[in-house]
Design a protein around this nucleic acid. Sequence first.
DNA 1: CGCCGGCGCAACCATCCGGTTGCATTTCGC
DNA 2: GCGAAATGCAACCGGATGGTTGCGCCGGCG
Lengths: 109, 109
Amino acid sequence: MASNTALKGTAPVFAALGDETRLRLVSRLSSGGPASIARLTAGSSVTRQAITKHLQVLAGAGLVRSSRRGRERVWELRPRQLLQARESLDAISRQWDEALGRLKAFVER
Amino acid sequence: MASNTALKGTAPVFAALGDETRLRLVSRLSSGGPASIARLTAGSSVTRQAITKHLQVLAGAGLVRSSRRGRERVWELRPRQLLQARESLDAISRQWDEALGRLKAFVER
DNA sequence: CGCCGGCGCAACCATCCGGTTGCATTTCGC
DNA sequence: GCGAAATGCAACCGGATGGTTGCGCCGGCG
C-alpha cells in the first residue's frame, strides 16, 4: 500500500533544486526575505539574465513568486512545494524503515 | 549565521532525484529492497540501458550502490544522502520560519 | 526633460541529458 | 557444450539547459 502517488509531481521540484545557483537563491530568499533581481544578482558569479532564468525555473516549479514593485521585480519564496518535497523524502524514508522492519522480522523468524 | 554551508554538495542529490524515472527507482528500492537491473526494468516504459544510466546517476550522487551477484547486478538503496537532503530542506524551512518570526516581531513593534 | 538604473526579450552557443540501437561478454541451466 | 538470460560498452541523436551578449523599454530622480 506504499503510496508512490505521494511522489507524483515532486520530481520537478527536485529538478529545480538540483542546481547550485538555484539552491543558493532559495536559501537566500528563505533567510533574507524578498529581494529584487539586481539584489539577487549582486554577489553571484553569473549574469543578471542567468539569475532571471533560474528564478523563472524556480517559479515554474512553484517555489517562488514575483511581483512588480515600481521599476523592479521582487521575488519571494513560496514554501508550500518545499514542504511537500520534504514530505516526499519523509515518505521514502518511511518506506525504507518499513522494509528494514520486515527484513528484521524475517531474519528473526 | 545561517549556514548555507549545510547546502554544500546537496544540489547533486536533488538533481539526481529531479527525474521521475529515478525518483521511482529510489522509491522502488526503498520499499521493495535490492533488485537487479532486469527486475527494475520490468514495469518501466524505457529501455534497460536507460535504467542502467539512471542507476549510475543515482550512484554518482551516492544514493544507491551495486554489487554483482552471479550474472546479475543487484542495486540497493543507501539512505544516508537521502536523509541529508531531507535535512537540507529542514534547514531551509527553519530559515524561513526564522525570517517569518523576525517579520512578525517587526510588524508588532 | 534627460539620464541612469532595473528589466524584459531574443538570438546564439556549447554542453549535458535522456533515450535508443547494436554488438560483445559473462553465466546459468539443461 | 549450447543456448538463452543478464549485463556491459559504445555510438549516435534530438532536445533541454545554463550561460552570454545586444538591444529596447520603462520608471524615477535630479
